[in-house]
Design a binder for these strands. Structure first.
Lengths: 208, 208, 208, 208
DNA sequence: AATGAATGAGATTTCATTCAT
DNA sequence: CATGAATGAAATCTCATTCAT
């Protein structure tokens, strides 16, 4: 069996086991067995448990990013791009729950090296959103540019909301039909909020 | 030393170690040492690693809920309550990063019993937000009531956004001064979005 | 509460727990709890687990010996004495199964010191039987005295048979009514065998 | 080193240590060291202390039964078969004192699962003896068949006597030369007793 | 007479990892 | 390319035992 195929099987098995058990509780024995290979072969190809986990994170992160980018038409207007990006995000996480669990739940909680890797992924998502927000503001003729820190905060809020909805919507029935609705809910929530910001309408504590 | 004091020290130590290392990687040795007690005493008082972790989750969850509730004036209007609740949430998570890490990052990823416990906490937060959204819609004279599933989705999105911002803002410098600003960013984002929804203004994919 | 009473409660509890769990698996915690006293008090009175176990063995051994002796009339003929001794033995072991379990099952299997103590008890039983056999042989006009080693072997066989029957008969229903029958079975088996030996009738391998 | 060899070494070591220390006091460390292997290997092959103990019991029980059966010629008359069976029993227990100690002293005192296993062995021995007694009675023209419960009692008594003698004779010097004599003593005691029973001669308490 | 508080030592068990083949 | 055999290190948890009061 060629190495590439074997390696993919191993990563598939590892993602499944890491998602189910967590990094520490996952055992190389179980991963090797699920991959249908012997443990020494796993070590020959992937060197160590740490390297294996890193490889999982990298592969799943690339796949997620690629899925989001593939569903966005770079020439479309900002709202369309946001809408399609969200749909791609929800579709991919719903189709690959183990990979999403590794990225979202496991990777951040098991030591710096992994957290950094997943933080880099997250930053790429945040960057995309940040660009959308900025463009939206500019395109809408925002009287004064939004402060940088606020834009970053908004981007984090939006990504967090998307992550939360992904988890919520995947945990319910009829996931397939839900994905579109989930995206719509978030879009309604976010887009109108962004529009208002763009127009300078704000909520202020003093108003209450 | 009286038992209560010792027990609190143990929980403090456990929260710190669980936050830093994760559930599986945390060792009872390290927890006992940090608590300044011997391992058998930890077992005598808290029975097992699982029970200890459960106790941590419960204590931190109660503390967080209490902090949020304490910062909300039940007689105030909906927007004011949301604003104060968010501020309480961000302030408490910023002041107790270890507790927040245990709740947000660790508890959900290490087996059903813990996940259920933290899901219950999250549900309580979501419920509060759900009520706020409904009241806001009613108070604002919403032409037709928002569909239930959409309200739930919005609540999850809002809680997810808050969670995400808590993690982001705590990871930056000057956390104290940031807390207010973080709350303001999210409030601007969310409140105006909610207002628009209330008024029936929506984003629709067909529009693009 | 006076010391003697407390000490008896402790020994009762210890015998019960040792019988149920074995020496090593029995925990001083369980014994103390069952005795209704605190652990330090147990240590104050009985010094250590080893001492406690020794005390149990000694008490139960004395009780068993006393019960057997009390049921034998020293003036009666040999067969009558054997008969009454067996009945006393079966009655006492049936009435005190925990004590018998400690003596028969536990004491011999947990290190030299205890084995010696219980071996001493057993030797006293064997001695009684040995005397009976010798007297029986003499009284019956045995042509030549039985070899010493054979008498010892017979005594051990008889005691072993009695022990085995005690375990068997106690494990069956209607123990009370059984006790007499058990004694009769063994008596029939043993006494007639002894009579034949006394008369020089033997089985020889060459005969077959 | 092939697995089978290693496993046998482990069982040998385990039998020796269990016999010397008892189930609870035996440590897996000591067993592994005596077997010349590392502890993880013992666990890999034999799974747990409980399984290891079970495996010891089973192996030693099979060996004992096999030894007894191998020394009996099924075509020989009843007394000859009893004689040879006893010799086989005494010879095997003398040659394998550790195995006998595990079966006789340890297995019955450490929890139901083990006790059941050893009870099954004992029942097989009792069954053999029961058959012998019945056949003897029939062959000898016993006027009326012995009551079933009495036969069972006799069988238990005989097995108990044999067990007791095995322990006694092994604890003395010159075991090799003793084995035959031990068997002879028991045979003399038992066979003549059985003969008398067969002929209806009984001891009765009223006689005294 | 009696106990709540505390621990050193050691038990079973698991796991990531490496050779020799 | 592939693996059966093997282990050092460390995890959770228990227990007999002792003080200070």
């Amino acid at each position: 069996m060629p190495r590439e195929v074997r390696e993919r099987q191993m990563l598939d098995a590892a993602v499944a086991v890491f998602a189910r058990r967590g990094y520490r509780a996952a055992s190389m024995d179980e991963i090797a067995e699920l991959a249908g290979a012997s443990k020494p072969l796993v070590y020959l190809y992937l060197h160590s448990k740490e390297d294996l986990f890193s490889a999982c994170i990298r592969r799943e992160a690339e796949a997620l990013i690629a899925a989001v980018q593939a569903s966005v038409d770079p020439g479309a207007p900002a709202d369309r791009r946001l809408w399609n990006g969200l749909r791609g995000f929800f579709a991919h996480t719903a189709a690959h729950p183990d990979g999403w669990a590794v990225l979202h739940c496991q990777a951040r909680t098991h030591g710096e090296p992994f957290a950094l890797e997943v933080a880099a992924l997250r930053q790429r998502l945040v960057d995309v959103v940040t660009r959308l927000i900025t463009e939206t503001a500019e395109a809408g003729g925002c009287p004064e540019p939004l402060p940088e820190v606020e834009v970053a905060g908004l981007a984090h809020a939006l990504v967090g909301a998307a992550e939360s909805l992904a988890g919520w919507s995947n945990g319910r029935d009829g996931a397939a039909s839900c994905e579109r609705q989930t995206a719509e809910t978030l879009m309604n929530f976010a887009w109108t909020g962004l529009e208002n910001l763009r127009n300078g309408r704000r909520w202020a504590p003093a108003r209450a």
